[in-house]
Amino acid sequence: MDEILGFIQAHQDMIYVVILMGFLGMEVIGRVPSVLHTPLMSGANAIHGVVIIGAVIIMGKAESDNYLALILGFLAVVLGTLNVVGGFVVTDRMLEMFKKKKPKS
Protein backbone atom coordinates (compact mmCIF):
# COMPACT_ATOMS: atom_id res chain seq x y z
CA MET A 1 0.00 0.00 0.00
CA ASP A 2 2.74 2.45 0.97
CA GLU A 3 4.50 1.59 -2.22
CA ILE A 4 1.45 2.46 -4.30
CA LEU A 5 0.94 5.74 -2.45
CA GLY A 6 4.61 6.53 -2.88
CA PHE A 7 4.31 5.76 -6.56
CA ILE A 8 1.41 8.17 -6.93
CA GLN A 9 3.36 10.80 -5.01
CA ALA A 10 6.44 10.34 -7.15
CA HIS A 11 4.61 10.33 -10.45
CA GLN A 12 1.89 12.85 -9.78
CA ASP A 13 2.83 14.92 -12.81
CA MET A 14 2.31 11.91 -15.06
CA ILE A 15 -1.00 11.15 -13.42
CA TYR A 16 -2.08 14.72 -14.08
CA VAL A 17 -1.04 14.31 -17.71
CA VAL A 18 -3.05 11.10 -18.03
CA ILE A 19 -6.21 12.61 -16.59
CA LEU A 20 -6.01 15.88 -18.52
CA MET A 21 -5.15 14.13 -21.78
CA GLY A 22 -8.06 11.77 -21.23
CA PHE A 23 -10.51 14.66 -21.11
CA LEU A 24 -8.77 16.45 -23.96
CA GLY A 25 -8.97 13.40 -26.19
CA MET A 26 -12.71 13.15 -25.66
CA GLU A 27 -13.24 16.88 -26.21
CA VAL A 28 -11.34 16.86 -29.45
CA ILE A 29 -13.31 13.92 -30.84
CA GLY A 30 -16.65 15.20 -29.65
CA ARG A 31 -17.08 17.76 -32.40
CA VAL A 32 -16.05 15.62 -35.33
CA PRO A 33 -18.59 15.34 -38.19
CA SER A 34 -19.23 11.74 -39.17
CA VAL A 35 -17.73 12.46 -42.60
CA LEU A 36 -14.33 12.47 -40.98
CA HIS A 37 -14.71 9.45 -38.71
CA THR A 38 -12.64 7.09 -40.82
CA PRO A 39 -9.78 9.53 -41.50
CA LEU A 40 -9.83 10.50 -37.84
CA MET A 41 -9.57 6.90 -36.69
CA SER A 42 -6.70 6.45 -39.10
CA GLY A 43 -4.99 9.63 -37.91
CA ALA A 44 -5.32 8.57 -34.28
CA ASN A 45 -3.91 5.22 -35.33
CA ALA A 46 -0.83 6.95 -36.71
CA ILE A 47 -0.39 9.03 -33.54
CA HIS A 48 -0.23 6.02 -31.24
CA GLY A 49 2.67 4.97 -33.42
CA VAL A 50 4.60 7.18 -31.00
CA VAL A 51 5.26 3.86 -29.27
CA ILE A 52 8.19 3.63 -31.70
CA ILE A 53 10.14 5.90 -29.32
CA GLY A 54 10.15 3.01 -26.87
CA ALA A 55 11.33 0.68 -29.61
CA VAL A 56 14.20 3.03 -30.49
CA ILE A 57 15.23 3.21 -26.83
CA ILE A 58 15.15 -0.58 -26.48
CA MET A 59 17.18 -1.00 -29.65
CA GLY A 60 19.64 1.74 -28.79
CA LYS A 61 20.53 0.48 -25.34
CA ALA A 62 20.76 -3.21 -26.21
CA GLU A 63 24.22 -4.66 -25.52
CA SER A 64 25.79 -6.43 -28.47
CA ASP A 65 25.54 -9.85 -26.76
CA ASN A 66 21.88 -9.51 -25.77
CA TYR A 67 20.31 -11.23 -28.75
CA LEU A 68 16.76 -11.16 -27.37
CA ALA A 69 16.87 -7.38 -27.02
CA LEU A 70 18.56 -6.95 -30.40
CA ILE A 71 16.15 -9.13 -32.34
CA LEU A 72 12.93 -8.10 -30.60
CA GLY A 73 14.05 -4.47 -30.51
CA PHE A 74 14.77 -4.52 -34.22
CA LEU A 75 11.40 -6.09 -34.91
CA ALA A 76 9.73 -3.48 -32.71
CA VAL A 77 11.44 -0.65 -34.62
CA VAL A 78 10.27 -2.09 -37.96
CA LEU A 79 6.68 -2.62 -36.76
CA GLY A 80 6.54 0.76 -35.04
CA THR A 81 7.75 2.53 -38.19
CA LEU A 82 5.13 0.62 -40.20
CA ASN A 83 2.48 1.94 -37.82
CA VAL A 84 3.69 5.54 -38.05
CA VAL A 85 4.42 5.74 -41.77
CA GLY A 86 1.50 3.62 -42.90
CA GLY A 87 -0.87 5.45 -40.59
CA PHE A 88 0.03 8.94 -41.74
CA VAL A 89 0.23 8.04 -45.43
CA VAL A 90 -3.15 6.28 -45.41
CA THR A 91 -4.74 9.21 -43.59
CA ASP A 92 -3.24 11.61 -46.09
CA ARG A 93 -4.56 9.53 -48.98
CA MET A 94 -8.05 9.56 -47.51
CA LEU A 95 -7.96 13.29 -46.93
CA GLU A 96 -6.54 14.00 -50.36
CA MET A 97 -10.01 13.28 -51.69
CA PHE A 98 -11.47 16.13 -49.69
CA LYS A 99 -9.05 18.75 -50.88
CA LYS A 100 -11.01 20.09 -53.86
CA LYS A 101 -14.05 20.45 -51.66
CA LYS A 102 -15.15 23.69 -50.16
CA PRO A 103 -15.35 23.33 -46.41
CA LYS A 104 -18.83 22.71 -45.13
CA SER A 105 -18.59 24.63 -41.90
Partner: peptide, 8 residues
Protein backbone atom coordinates in the same frame (compact mmCIF):
# COMPACT_ATOMS: atom_id res chain seq x y z
CA UNK B 1 0.15 10.60 -27.62
CA UNK B 2 -0.97 7.30 -26.15
CA UNK B 3 -3.53 8.64 -23.71
CA UNK B 4 -4.87 11.09 -26.28
CA UNK B 5 -5.56 8.24 -28.70
CA UNK B 6 -6.78 5.98 -25.91
CA UNK B 7 -9.37 8.52 -24.80
CA UNK B 8 -10.36 9.65 -28.28
Amino acid sequence: GGILVGAA
